[in-house]
């Protein structure tokens, strides 16, 4: 861990424009110890007033510093956005959820083994150095949205649920505040995997806004290598409403399979208006997976996603 200047911001305007914020610290310190992150200045934002969950425009406005555990336990979230509670509770451990924040969770870095090993070339860590994962161990890696420069996945569960809920990210910058749809928030790696979001230098996430809850059933299903305390191999956040025996509305987002929480509107459109049959599910899933490709060690994620999705849809479409 390289030396840094530590400072604490007392209000949001003081924080904005700083190069590196720290809140829960559960991912930043992890990476600083490995020498992967090397900020020379960090700004502690934990004392800022961003810890409330407020009713807002028929939905909720979640302060960026709301902890994962407080968010998961909030009765409004449990009742109205159970997919989000479930996603949060399936992530990390009780201890980590107490420290990890809403804003920080969105900005988690990948768990790619080679990204975390400073001695391995990595385009995300050092653009242009190469991707060690390609040709290496790829169990954790992406089947969708990857590039020849990076095949890492985004590790968050929370963001997958928020993606299905059409969340908006509220950020404060030098030029004021703006709202970014979560679906526009993350970049695909292409040739610059180091640029993970559309945030500008010094912009601070202040809140996440959830629109009014969609109608229908919600669920979050996470598949992983042990019963608890492991990152997703595949996860599905699903919201489905039915009408007259047909699928009326769907929102489905996927974790563990892509560089960002994955959502595919064309795939969703292929479900709407149809009867919930295996044929419907499989035909739509063919669209979802039209560009899917494995690296060898993660090939299994393609059938795993197909099967898990089918089970989730079957459950959600039951009237």
């Amino acid at each position: 861990m390289t030396p840094f200047n530590y400072e604490r911001a007392s209000d949001i305007s003081e924080a904005v424009g700083k190069p590196q914020f720290i809140a829960g610290g559960t991912n930043l310190l992890d990476l600083m110890k490995l020498g992967v992150e090397t900020p020379d200045r960090i700004t502690d934002i934990t004392r800022l007033d961003m810890k409330n969950i407020e009713d807002h425009e028929g939905g909720l406005r979640i302060g960026a510093l709301v902890s994962n555990s407080d968010l998961a336990a909030d009765m409004r979230v449990r009742q109205t956005y159970p997919v989000l509670s479930r996603a949060l509770l399936s992530g990390a451990s009780g201890q980590l959820r107490n420290m990890a924040t809403t804003g920080g969770n969105l900005l988690q870095r990948t768990r790619c083994y080679y990204f975390q090993d400073k001695s391995s070339p990595c385009n995300k860590r050092e653009p242009g150095s190469g991707c060690s994962a390609i040709g290496g161990v790829t169990r954790l890696h992406a089947i969708l949205g990857a590039s020849e420069h990076c095949i890492a996945t985004h590790p968050s569960d929370m963001a997958v649920a928020m993606q299905a809920l059409d969340a908006l990210v509220e950020v404060e910058g030098k030029d004021g505040s703006r709202r970014i749809a979560l679906s526009d928030f993350y970049r695909l790696p292409e040739d610059r995997p180091d640029r993970e979001t559309v945030l500008e230098y010094g912009e601070l996430i202040t809140a996440v806004v959830l629109p009014p809850a969609p109608t229908g059933k919600q669920t979050y299903r996470k598949v992983r290598d042990r019963a608890s305390y492991a990152f997703a191999l595949v996860s599905v956040a699903g919201i489905v409403s039915m009408q007259d025996g047909k699928i009326a509305q769907v929102a489905l987002a996927f974790g563990g399979v892509a560089p960002r929480p994955w959502r595919d509107l064309e795939f969703e459109a292929a479900l709407v208006g149809r009867a919930p049959t295996r044929e419907t599910f499989d035909a739509a899933t063919d669209i979802l997976l039209r560009d899917a490709s494995g690296q060898g060690g993660n090939d299994f994620k393609i059938p795993l996603l197909r099967r898990t999705l089918r089970a989730v849809l079957t459950e959600l479409c039951e009237e």
């Binding site: 720290i22 610290g25 310190l29 201890q95 980590l96 420290m99």
Partner: peptide, 10 residues
């Protein structure tokens, strides 16, 4: 909390 993942000065 995990005391290893928080700075003392915070």
């Amino acid at each position: 909390i995990n005391s290893c993942l928080t700075l003392a000065c915070m």
